[in-house]
Design a binder for these strands. Structure first.
Ligand SMILES: [Mn+2]
Ligand SMILES: [Mn+2]
Ligand SMILES: [Zn+2]
Ligand SMILES: [Zn+2]
Lengths: 136, 136
DNA sequence: ATCTTCTTTAGAATAATTATAAACAACGAA
DNA sequence: TTCGTTGTTTATAATTATTCTAAAGAAGAT
């Protein structure tokens, strides 16, 4: 059980005032055991389901982007009509079940070090992510 | 120099009749030495530039999707407001220069075998792709 | 309590993609 | 070739995720 104080801290660190709406967003995002992969729309519906309170879609978008910018959320690179985010901000990789449209974590140690034997002058590596598409 | 007959063959294989518009699309897509990474909008503008003839956006979308379905084009998984495609349909990976919004190929042998030490029951691996984000 | 600054929200705007349906072109049989 | 059929192009509308706007409301400081 994550405490409300932690949510307030996360919000403050993201330069956001701790409002009722934003705390509700945090409840759904961070009060969990396992990693959470979601689209904005998933999140929006879950907030209503879990907290019983309404939040505007704009607030969800704004808050998610602030958390993403601060590093409390990760954006997962897949082609979909909606953007996927992840509460697991550690270095890791993903399965994407194409049929179910669902993401599954792959721990870094389950892939092993990835050595990129090529470099681009003047550029440095920001991230290395593996996406494994799954089919039946 | 790729021949027009090859374009016609590609179109037929994709269950498309070889029309003037589609041949023009093929000219821009396949008449090249190096791999070509593009968005639909890139392609649309290049067709007008290179062939001097107009094509409707809908035709570009439809033709690209048919080629993609047939396997003549690859879709590159990155989060962008536009979808990126690739004429290199071999197994390979990418740098993505975030600032320039440009994709660069990484040959398979420049990454080495990627061993996924995890599996999902009832699912098999369809593809494994590495995306390396670059910054200055 | 009051003032200032930030926030929420409904609704409008934007932009990529997809759908529609009428005019048009490719094809194959006669 | 001509004709009939089937597939195609295109302008335009529809859809949909995301962002913007501006007015009303809440938080924080003094
Ligand atoms: Mn973002
Ligand atoms: Mn596609
Ligand atoms: Zn994850
Ligand atoms: Zn490529």
């Amino acid at each position: 059980m994550t405490s409300k104080q932690e949510f307030i801290e996360k919000l403050r660190n993201s330069s956001l005032r701790p409002t009722k709406q934003r705390i509700n967003i945090c409840e759904v995002l961070f009060n969990r055991d396992k990693t959470f992969h979601f689209t904005i729309n998933d999140l929006f519906n879950l907030i209503i389901d879990k907290t019983g309170e309404k939040v505007s879609l704009a607030t969800v978008y704004n808050t998610v982007h602030a958390f993403h910018k601060k590093g409390y959320l990760k954006e997962i690179p897949i082609n979909s009509n909606q953007t996927y985010f992840d509460t697991n901000v550690t270095d890791h990789h993903h399965f994407f079940d194409v049929k179910e449209e669902k993401l599954i974590d792959i721990k870094n140690e389950d892939v092993g070090p990835i050595e990129i034997q090529k470099s681009i002058p003047g550029k440095k590596i920001k991230s290395v992510e593996v996406l494994v598409k799954l089919e039946d």
